Deep mutational scan, measured.
Amino acid sequence: MQNSHSGVNQLGGVFVNGRPLPDSTRQKIVELAHSGARPCDISRILQVSNGCVSKILGRYYETGSIRPRAIGGSKPRVATPEVVSKIAQYKRECPSIFAWEIRDRLLSEGVCTNDNIPSVSSINRVLRNLASEKQQMGADGMYDKLRMLNGQTGSWGTRPGWYPGTSVPGQPTQDGCQQQEGGGENTNSISSNGEDSDEAQMRLQLKRKLQRNRTSFTQEQIEALEKEFERTHYPDVFARERLAAKIDLPEARIQVWFSNRRAKWRREEKLRNQRRQASNTPSHIPISSSFSTSVYQPIPQPTTPVSSFTSGSMLGRTDTALTNTYSALPPMPSFTMANNLPMQPPVPSQTSSYSCMLPTSPSVNGRSYDTYTPPHMQTHMNSQPMGTSGTTSTGLISPGVSVPVQVPGSEPDMSQYWPRLQ
């Protein structure tokens, strides 16, 4: 039975679970980093996980050691009161100082060594604690504590007292930064006198190289990059290397530039699409467009005044059976039934097929058609009795279509119309 579990990581490298990497692998990681390889490249070359490479390099940059820390136990506290007071002093002298600059000053002034120097995250935590204590304490208590930490007896009751030896409130920041720059020169002199001055200088240079600022491109470089971006948004590694040799930039910087440029292009394309949609959409909808001609068919113009009344309900007709019959029939052209047409008796099958359309009241044959006459024609229609054979009435077949029909004066039988409509 094995005491430890061995495995293979996602890159194909072998590791022992819970145990640190061998010293030979750690040394190779540092050597590759000094030669300029990126952590992701080191991870692929040595088949070590990216997190492990970053952790080893980060500890090497901070402490200069590649040895693993002790497994188990607690780390001794490195942010001692003396170190905290120095950090507060540096922050007062130059409020814009960075944590890694404070760390360098602690090393250069001999406050800490490589073994007990606090990390950048520890210094940031100390600065946050100082800021929170400043908010919790009152103004007087804060000034007393700062005077105690600074070891001075001057008056701290006013704002300019934060910067000793100065009279203009805006000047101390520059003086403090100048003092810090002077301390940086002392850093070089002190570290050069040490035993491991060369190694420390190499480590600091490598650290500065990794902690780079934003790349500033010249106009020629920007023009070359934009020209390549117009050709393709995704250049391959050969195109990037050719462009890197042409404009004297690292291939990694060119790759990052193209990634950022593609993101910018997507944002601009989104804005262009929004403007295009806004320009195509009308600002207001016309009133006429809300009524579609496919839904509402136009009603033909009436030929006679009587045809303006298109349904039985508008003429005072309360018989719903006839109203439904007229509205359900398709529109037909106007025609006239003459008196000489043969009077065919209704076929029983045809009569039964339209039995649902006729009223059940037996008085329908005896009703006159003056009910369908509009009010303004009552006088004219009353002067001509319906009993004469020459009287013409208008029957409504569908809305908007008038059918003048000659009705025999002897017997106005409704059943004569249905064979004609089939």
Results as ranks from 00 to 15, higher is better:
His34Ala: 15
Arg105Lys: 08
Ser132His: 09
Arg67Ala: 05
Met142Thr: 12
Arg77Trp: 09
Glu31Leu: 10
Val126Glu: 03
Thr63Glu: 15
Gly138Ala: 13
Leu127Met: 06
Arg147Met: 11
Leu107Ala: 07
Phe98Cys: 13
Arg38Phe: 03
Val83Trp: 02
Ser65Thr: 12
Ile102Gly: 01
Gln47Lys: 03
Ile45Met: 10
Ser4Asn: 12
Ala70Gln: 10
Gln27Val: 12
Val48Trp: 04
Ser96Ile: 07
Glu31Met: 10
His34Trp: 12
Ser121Val: 00
Lys134Phe: 11
Val78Ser: 04
Ser121Gly: 06
Ile123Val: 06
Gly141Val: 09
Leu127His: 05
Gly72Asp: 01
Ile123Thr: 15
Asn114Arg: 11
Asp140Ser: 10
Lys134Asn: 10
Tyr61Leu: 14
Asp140Arg: 11
Lys145Asn: 11
Ser6Tyr: 05
Leu127Ile: 12
Leu46Tyr: 02
Pro95Met: 15
Gln27Gly: 11
Ile45Glu: 15
Leu106Ile: 07
Ser4Pro: 09
Ser65Glu: 13
Arg103Asp: 03
Asp41Tyr: 12
Pro118Cys: 05
Gly72Val: 00
Asn50Ile: 15
Val83Ile: 15
Gly18Met: 00
Ala70Trp: 05
Val14Asn: 11
Gly18Asn: 01
Val78Lys: 05
Ile29Glu: 02
Tyr90Lys: 08
Arg125Leu: 00
Asp104Arg: 13
Lys145Gly: 10
Lys91Trp: 00
Ser43Asp: 01
Asn129Met: 09
Val78Pro: 00
Arg103Ser: 11
Gly138Pro: 14
Arg147Asn: 11
Arg103Thr: 03
Gly7Arg: 04
Pro118Ile: 15
Gly110Gln: 08
Ser24Tyr: 14
Gly72Pro: 00
Asp115His: 04
Arg67Trp: 09
Lys134Cys: 05
Asn9Ala: 01
Asp144Gly: 08
Val120Thr: 00
Gly36Trp: 04
Gly73Ala: 00
Gly36Lys: 05
Thr80Cys: 07
Asn9Arg: 02
Leu21Thr: 12
Asp140Thr: 08
Lys55Gly: 02
His5Leu: 13
Asn150Ser: 08
Ser35Gly: 15
Arg69Ser: 07
Arg44Gly: 04
Gly64Asp: 02
Glu101Trp: 07
Lys145Arg: 08
Asn9Phe: 02
Val84Trp: 05
Phe98Pro: 15
Lys28His: 10
Thr80Pro: 08
Ser65Pro: 01
Glu133Ala: 09
Val8Gln: 07
Lys86Ser: 11
Asn116Thr: 14
